[in-house]
């Protein structure tokens, strides 16, 4: 029988594929929002004892990850009038191919990590690895600074997944650490984006090359 967590994780993996294939920013933001929501509700399906506290924590994560961050990024691109298409460093087809390779390779790796796995929920570690590497890949492969922020968030989703497989109490510490990280990261990036935009009138990070000595 397929464990419900695995179904969720398959959705996450599919969202990675979608993210790599999409060429437009709003779509990418929506995919990331979806991914955030799915990743956030994973703890409900794990066999932890859910206390009220942990329910609140999980809901807070879901709100920030699935709603607050995507919405703020979305409103930012509206306000700043950013081009909706993304230029790439690595093309879409190659990206999708890479993500497929990654999804195949990740389970082979997951046994290397001695993370506590749950009965049935065997995909957690491999999905986490996929998300981290894929987020990193997105950071590298897209020129648009917003897309890079989104890649960063994808990485954080992966780390969050690793956190969920810890025991219930340690889990929240990890989660909240990550959340604070993400919030701070997104805020800093927003400020930096503003200045990049002011300086170059564009969000193409390749222009930062000019800063080289």
């Amino acid at each position: 029988m397929i464990h419900p967590v695995d179904i969720l994780l398959v959705l996450v993996l599919l969202s990675v594929l979608f993210a790599f294939a999409s060429s437009r920013l709003p779509v990418l933001i929506r995919i990331l929002a979806f991914q955030g929501v799915v990743v956030s509700i994973v703890p409900f399906f794990l066999e932890h004892d859910m206390t009220t506290g942990s329910v609140v924590f999980t809901m807070a994560t879901l709100t920030i990850r699935g709603i607050v961050i995507p919405w703020s990024i979305y409103s930012m691109i509206q306000k700043m009038g950013i081009k909706r298409e993304m230029e790439t460093v690595v093309g879409y087809n190659v990206s999708v191919f890479f993500s497929l390779l990654l999804i195949v390779a990740a389970p082979m790796l997951s046994h290397k990590f001695n993370l506590p796995s749950f009965s049935g929920g065997t995909l957690i570690t491999s999905t986490a690895i996929t998300l981290v590497v894929a987020g990193m890949f997105l950071l590298m492969a897209r020129r648009n600074a917003i897309a890079m922020v989104l890649g960063y968030i994808m990485m954080e989703n992966g780390i969050y997944l690793v956190g969920t497989s810890f025991s219930a109490r340690a889990q929240h510490i990890v989660e909240f650490g990550i959340l604070l990280d993400v919030l701070a990261g997104v805020m800093i990036m927003a400020i930096m984006l503003q200045s990049i935009k002011q300086k170059y009138d564009n969000l193409d990070t390749a222009l930062l090359r000019e800063l080289k000595e």
């Binding site: 460093v89 390779a105 290397k112 981290v132 590497v133 990193m136 950071l139 590298m140 990070t205 090359r209």
Partner: peptide, 21 residues
Amino acid sequence: QHGDIHLYIGYILLAIVVLLF
């Protein structure tokens, strides 16, 4: 040291992949 941020991230990615595998 070429100054291209994407390739720098690429170095990190490469390092992570190599370390993982």
